[in-house]
């Protein structure tokens, strides 16, 4: 069995009190719970405060470009499907810079678990608005308040074809751990939004703010295989905010649709590939 320390490395530079700490904790606890060997874990991310999580998890980590972490996960899973592929992104990262990748990767249903650290602000670049910032939210780039309505990440994931969609709140470590473990166990694309207080740049969506609003979907009767129900629940936003599993269905995952992915790419024997047959077509 693995332990938390097996996944621990690096000198963490998040601000004290940042919601990312509990996310990192939960991620490691979920890995322990599922006994995933660090060497079988491919952890990709983009760029942002949130994306540093892959540097600080002992595994095979790859923090790529802003908005593109999910693509690394897609390639990694297709080239070696024996790996548990896990990806983290910020709200600017995933829903601004790289939003097209979310749409197209979700609809593939690749077996990857994606966590969105939604702090509704750009942390690393010191506090500009993000695609999920609430209307009226004042930032250094929106001194008169954000004008647009925020993007709803869950709805986007649902309409794009994710087969596992959940939300948690960074203030509830046990809940995130449980949901992340569920997400990893789910075969197919798992999308998990985590409401993450940014104690430095988000004065509005604080721990208290979310504590007041969040309630667990799973506490009441709720059928997460019902897409229309999920659609309705995802629209609940404001005084009460559901957390938990919104949607979960079974569907063949992308990598399984390719017979060539059965064996990891690097294990294919590529010495002396015979191409005589190929030339025949050109004679």
């Amino acid at each position: 069995m693995t332990e938390i320390k097996d996944y621990t490395q690096g000198k963490i530079t998040w601000c004290a009190g940042c919601g990312d700490f509990s996310i990192l904790n939960a991620v490691k606890r979920a890995f322990v719970e599922l006994n995933i060997q660090p060497e079988n874990l491919a952890f990709t991310s983009g760029i942002g405060c949130s994306s540093k999580i892959s540097y600080w998890t002992k595994a095979y980590g790859f923090s790529g470009l802003h908005g593109r972490g999910l693509q690394l996960a897609l390639g990694a899973k297709l080239a070696n499907r024996n790996l548990t592929v896990f990806s983290a992104a910020g709200d600017g990262d995933l829903l601004g810079e790289g939003v097209n990748h979310l749409i197209h990767t979700a609809r593939k249903n690749i077996d990857v678990t994606l966590i969105l650290h939604n702090n509704q602000v750009y942390g690393l670049t010191t506090g500009q608005k993000s695609p999920t910032s609430e209307k009226g939210f004042i930032t250094i780039s929106t001194p008169k308040g954000v004008v647009e309505d925020p993007l709803n990440p869950l709805l986007l994931a649902l309409t794009s074809g994710s087969t596992f969609i959940a939300r948690c709140f960074a203030g509830d470590l046990n809940h995130i751990t449980k949901i992340i473990a569920e997400g990893i166990k789910h075969k197919g694309f798992s999308f998990i939004e985590i409401l993450q207080p940014c104690v430095t740049y988000n004065y509005l969506n604080t721990y208290d703010y979310w504590k007041e609003r969040c309630y667990d979907l799973q506490q009441n009767k709720y059928d997460f295989t019902n897409k229309e129900e999920a659609f309705k629940k995802m629209h609940e936003y404001g005084k009460k905010m559901p957390v938990g599993i919104f949607y979960k269905i079974n569907k063949p995952s992308y990598e399984e649709l390719f017979k060539q992915t059965k064996i990891p790419s690097y294990k294919h024997n590529i010495d002396n590939i015979n191409i005589d047959k190929l030339f025949e077509e050109f004679r």
Binding site: R68, G75, L78, A79
Partner: peptide
């Protein structure tokens, strides 16, 4: 979906050892 996705996905595969 686009060339940005193309090269980043290929790098993900290369990272895990595929000739890409």
């Amino acid at each position: 979906e686009d060339e940005i996705s193309v090269i980043n996905t290929a790098l993900g595969a290369s990272w895990t050892g595929a000739r890409s």
